[in-house]
Design a protein around this nucleic acid. Structure first.
Length: 306
DNA sequence: AAACAACCCAACCGCCAAGGG
DNA sequence: CCCCTTGGCGGTTGGGTTGTT
């Protein structure tokens, strides 16, 4: 125990690399190249295992490495690639010249943590009674206890298997009511074949790009400020219309390159958690099931008005 | 200022597939 | 066919750093 599986020699150094070690490795590789990593430590005069040398070279020392903060373009690419292929870091890295899988993985993991960190909910009223008019800024649901929604949300996140923690949704903030759910159905998003996933016991849909539930989206200065990089045309299209874009318009929108930015799935798509067995005769999930599958403490915004 | 907590990220671990003997 | 080595990959860790009380 405690021994590196590939390093059975006696004096094998581990841990952070010193500048002297780096220099030895760089000097050896740049003059001899690398063929067999297991020979490198001996020939380069390093007390490391070959695997460690390889990792150090690939992730840090090789000359074409690109370091420093990710550019906005790189971030977008990572997000969209991750939405497409999941935690295949090497694959994602292959699309970002000079970036390593390790770096992207680290970036994603710390970024994820930031994104799921619990935001401060609106406090309860002074009497301790719930504020019936509280509207969750992201989900657009009125709830007696905002914490319930957040906890439910975080439980969901906690149950995402690591290999499936890939869901992104390009959909910006939206609210759910009967007509917007219908609109999603009209777009074909709900019944698409390949975008259903199991998260714990729940079946969850990953919406297709630009799943444009623009109907009844409620934008305020607050949530608009939270949407980075969204173009003014998109904003106009999203907020200026109270009707869902038609499929054709959507396609044109996509072709014009006016993509909505990607967002973490679980941050916005809570309303699409459904019971897997609530289907109609054709096997399609009933839209109404979306609402009924919500925790009973959440009510539709429109219901709350009455 | 010090103690503690949270975060970051380079490096490690275990697993797997490929290839050679 | 098995066995062993090797490189590649994704998940995870732990120590250093930064932030907070």
């Amino acid at each position: 125990m405690g021994h590196h599986s590939c390093c059975n020699q006696q004096k094998v150094k581990r841990g952070l690399w010193s500048p002297e070690e780096d220099e030895k490795l760089i000097r050896y590789i740049t003059t001899h190249g690398y063929g067999c990593w297991s020979e490198v430590p001996d020939k380069a005069g390093l007390q490391r295992c070959g695997k460690s040398c390889r990792l150090r070279w690939i992730n840090y020392l090789r000359p074409d490495i690109r370091r420093g903060r990710f550019s906005p373009e790189e971030e977008k690419l990572i997000i969209s690639l991750h939405g497409a292929v999941g935690n295949r870091w090497a694959h994602i890295a292959s699309h970002l010249p000079g970036r390593t899988d390790n770096e992207i993985k680290n970036y994603w993991n710390s970024w994820i943590k930031k994104k799921i960190r619990k935001p401060a909910p609106s406090p309860p009223t002074a009497t301790g009674k719930p504020n019936p008019h509280y509207r969750h800024p992201q989900f657009g649901y009125t709830t007696a206890n905002p914490d319930n929604l957040l906890n439910h949300h975080q439980d969901l996140v906690a149950n995402i298997p690591a290999q499936d923690a890939v869901f992104t949704s390009p959909g910006p903030f939206f609210t759910f009511d009967a007509s917007s759910l219908e609109a999603i159905g009209e777009l074909g998003g709900v019944n698409s074949e390949n975008n259903w996933h199991m998260i714990g016991q729940e079946q969850v849909q990953v919406l297709p790009p630009l799943a444009s539930f623009t109907t009844n989206m409620e934008y305020s200065n607050n949530n608009l400020a939270s949407i980075d990089d969204i173009g003014s045309m998109e904003l106009q299209a999203c907020s200026g219309s109270n009707e869902c874009l038609q499929r054709q318009e959507l396609d044109e929108w996509v072709e014009a390159g006016q993509h909505c930015p990607s967002f973490l799935f679980w941050e916005h798509s809570e309303g699409l958690v459904m019971d897997g067995d609530q289907e109609d005769a054709a096997g399609s999930p009933k839209l109404g099931a979306m609402l009924s599958s919500f925790p009973s403490s959440f009510r539709d915004v429109n219901d709350a008005e009455h």
